[in-house]
Amino acid sequence: MNTNMTTYTDCCGAGQEVASMNHDHATKRPQYYRAPVDVHENDELFTIVADMPGSTAEGIEISVEDNTLEVRGKVYNRYQDLGRILHQEYGIGDFHRRFRIGDGIDASQITATCKDGILTVRLPKTESVQARTIEVRAE
C-alpha cells in the first residue's frame, strides 16, 4: 500500500529549523516536539487525539505510506521582538509523530480535524476486519 494521502496541504515536509529560545544555549539544530496522544478504538474505527497547541489545520500534514502514518504540525515562532524571555517551560517548534498501522485500516478513508490545538485523526477499519470480530455475549 503506497498511498500518500495528504489530508491537509500547504505545509512543507521537512521540519523547520528552529533556533533555541534560550540565548545562552543558542543552537541551530532542528527541534521537533513529540505531541502527546490518546488512542481510542471502537468497532468501526481507531481515533488518535493529539495535543498540538499552536498548530492550525493549514499547518498540519498527515501522510500514510508503507503502513506508517505520519503527522507533522507546523508551529511558527511568535516571540520575535516581544522582549526578553524570563521563564520558559516549552520551546517553539514543529510537532512530529509516527505510527505504524496495519492492513486492517482503510487508508483511503482516513480523515482528520483540528480545533483548539487538538488534532483528531479517524482511521476506519476495513469492512473485512469489522466482520471478523466475533462478539461473545454473556448469557
Binding site: 496495519g102 477499519k125 461473545v136
Partner: peptide, 28 residues
C-alpha cells in the same frame, strides 16, 4: 465486549509506535 478478535494482529495500529525519529524530541 468482543472477547475474541482474530483480526487484532492484522491491524496493530498505533499499538506499536515507530521508534522516535529524532534524538532531540522532547516529551511533555
Amino acid at each position: 465486549r468482543a472477547l475474541f478478535t482474530p483480526a487484532t494482529n492484522a491491524m496493530t495500529l498505533v499499538r506499536n509506535e515507530v521508534e522516535r525519529m529524532f534524538d532531540n524530541v522532547f516529551s511533555y
